[in-house]
Design a protein around this nucleic acid. Structure first.
Length: 581
DNA sequence: GCCGTTTTCGGCCCGACTGTTTTCAGTCG
């Protein structure tokens, strides 16, 4: 049996944490399991192998006890304590805690008093009017439960907003508030937007003004806000939704505390928790209102975020790194992070030959305008309908045309390539003889997403080991907020890529960002050449897309030296499997 | 259950909100 993946192990630890919480364990123990799950999920190497090697306790948050449980998990496929707790608490109890206002303590109480053990039985108890009889539960809660079921539990999940859309909304809101003549001094988006997350739950805005209440009061009147959704603005805060349903949270303070507020609402939650933990050891208590010093009893107010970090004797952490992935540990220093202008080449784009909107000449002119040294034309291959089919004969003609264009042009290297489909059996859908004649070959999965992990992994590894495939495109196939990734074993894939010298792409499309930040880091750590590509289908998008791929690379803590297409062409060329161009 | 410049025990982030209470536990972000 293949070893469990990091994700499998992390899920087992999260489940155990949930079970202990239901069992009434002290919260710190529960948190310990969740911390360990996060550490495992984001570990740069296969945790199963670390367990076998006896080194798993080197992960921060995994100690002796968890090591024993992980050994049991790998040896027997299960953790004994989890088995016991599973027998004690029906699986439906965890599902119940997903309801608003119903946490583990209260779910447990309903189970003990009413034998409510699932969403279904909870619904029935509400309909029977039994809930309000339990101490601590009232008519309001019962109504809330009925309402939740009426609305459909599934639909109650707030849709997440893709980052570009969130930024667009935030910019509109900031511009309107600045123009509202209510005394805004500073205003910007915080939260996941400022950290360049893939998607966000809501739009967090922070602002400063001499009279914060006046700014808060202005939110419901903005043109893109639906005033009927606004709660009564407070002295320092206002909440409302846009006309299309996006939740907006605005917080406003006087300028002397703007740094505290910005730091607090940029997060992440995990970063802030760790930050406050570290601060407590120094006798300091951090909140959105300031930093309280135990020694003097004084609360320091910080106008800038830099002051907050300096006061805690920490390096200033760039927002996109604030995820508690080591950035607050002693000795951490700010890494150099890749920037859009570092990119010298784009190795994945489309033209009218397949489903793109511009010609080869137009795409190349656009690349020159962006100052690139090289661009690869990688239209879709012949199987499955992406616009026009590029038949093998079409592609042969393209080779000659592009090579001729390349001869004609100075200042840029134009490569003829392809984005070949990885067929279900792992073969590319052009013959080797044709792939060999190209300058660059991307290969991607576009079909048969429903395979089990083992089959999909074998399929992708076969492509990685192919002698003419230079790079795998959008590895996981996910479309953020729309389609989950297909199943595959990232450890096996990264391993194969490192062994065979096959590159892995960070696809910059904002709904892909694929490799994701954890996989990108893992690939880099394994010595895989990582590239950032646009997958652009027009000149216009080719210019605007790189920033999203760069954001993922930065969140993966990658610098220019970690991204292969920051190299000039002469140095990049020999990294391909083919040695001549 | 983890961890240590308060180091093998005794801590473990902070504040707001809510519904159900008469002072707060649980939940949420």
């Amino acid at each position: 049996m293949a070893d469990l993946s990091n994700a499998d192990i992390a899920d087992a630890l999260d489940e155990l944490g949930d079970l202990y919480e239901l069992d009434g364990a002290i919260i710190h123990r529960v948190v310990a399991y969740r911390n360990a799950a996060k550490a495992v999920r984001e570990a740069p190497q296969a945790v199963a192998a670390m367990v076998r090697a006896g080194t798993v306790t080197s992960l921060v948050g995994v100690g002796k006890t968890l090591e024993e449980k992980l050994i049991a998990l790998l040896d027997t496929g299960t953790i004994p304590s989890a088995e016991k707790l599973r027998a004690k608490y029906p699986p439906g109890l965890v599902a119940m805690t997903k309801l608003p206002g119903l946490g583990p303590k209260r779910a447990r109480k309903l189970y003990d008093e009413l034998q409510v053990d699932s969403l279904e039985s909870l619904h029935q108890a509400a309909k029977d009017g039994k809930l309000k009889g339990v101490k601590g539960f009232g008519a309001k809660f019962e109504a809330l439960v009925l309402e939740a079921f009426e609305a459909g539990i599934a639909e109650r999940q707030e849709p997440r907003i893709l980052l570009p859309r969130a930024i667009e909304l935030a910019n509109e809101l900031c511009a309107e508030l600045r123009g509202a003549n209510v005394g805004v001094l500073s205003i910007e988006a915080a939260g996941g937007i400022r950290r360049w997350s893939e998607s966000v739950k809501d739009i967090d805005l922070v602002a400063s003004a001499a009279d914060p209440a006046a700014v808060a009061a202005a939110l419901p009147g903005l043109s893109i806000i639906d005033p009927s959704t606004a709660s009564k603005p407070g002295e320092f805060a206002a909440k409302a939704r846009t006309h299309n349903g996006a939740q907006v949270d605005l917080r406003v303070v006087t300028p002397d505390r703007y740094g505290n507020l910005l730091q607090h609402f940029t997060g992440s939650r995990d970063h802030n928790m760790r930050l406050r933990e570290q601060a407590v050891r120094k006798g300091l208590h951090v909140s959105e209102y300031g930093v309280l010093d135990d020694a003097s009893g004084e609360t320091h107010r910080c106008a800038s975020e830099e002051e907050v970090y300096a006061l805690l004797d920490l390096p200033f952490v760039p927002p996109e790194l604030r995820e508690n992935r080591g950035e607050l540990e002693p000795g951490w220093t700010v890494p150099e992070l890749v920037q859009v202008q570092d990119l010298r080449g784009d190795l994945h784009c489309h033209t009218i030959a397949s489903d793109g909107r511009n010609t080869v000449e137009e795409m190349v002119a656009g690349a020159m305008e962006r100052g690139l040294d090289y661009i690869a034309i990688t239209d879709h291959s012949a199987t499955h309908g992406f616009g026009n089919h590029v038949t093998p004969d079409d592609l042969r003609r393209q080779i000659d045309r592009v090579h001729e264009l390349n001869e004609r042009l100075d200042g840029i290297e134009v490569l003829i390539g392809t984005e070949t489909n990885i067929l279900p059996d792992g073969r590319p859908d052009y013959d080797d003889e044709l792939l060999e004649q190209l300058d660059w070959v991307m290969a991607s999965v576009h079909t048969s997403f429903g395979m089990d992990s083992e089959t999909m992994t074998a399929r992708i590894v076969a492509a990685i080991e192919h002698p003419w495939i230079d790079c795998i495109g959008h590895l996981s196939g996910r479309r953020i907020t729309k389609r989950p990734p297909y199943l595959f074993d990232i450890d096996a894939i990264v391993d194969a890529a490192a062994r065979s010298g096959t590159m892995l792409e960070i696809n910059a499309s904002p709904e892909r960002r694929d490799l994701n930040e954890v996989h990108a880091r893992q690939a880099r750590d394994a010595g895989v050449n990582v590239v950032i590509n646009t997958d652009a289908h027009s000149v216009e998008t080719a210019a605007t897309l790189p920033v999203w791929g760069v954001a993922t690379a930065r969140r993966a803590r990658l610098g220019p030296a970690d991204i292969a297409n920051t190299l000039p062409w002469a140095e990049f060329a020999p990294l391909r499997k083919r040695t001549t161009s």
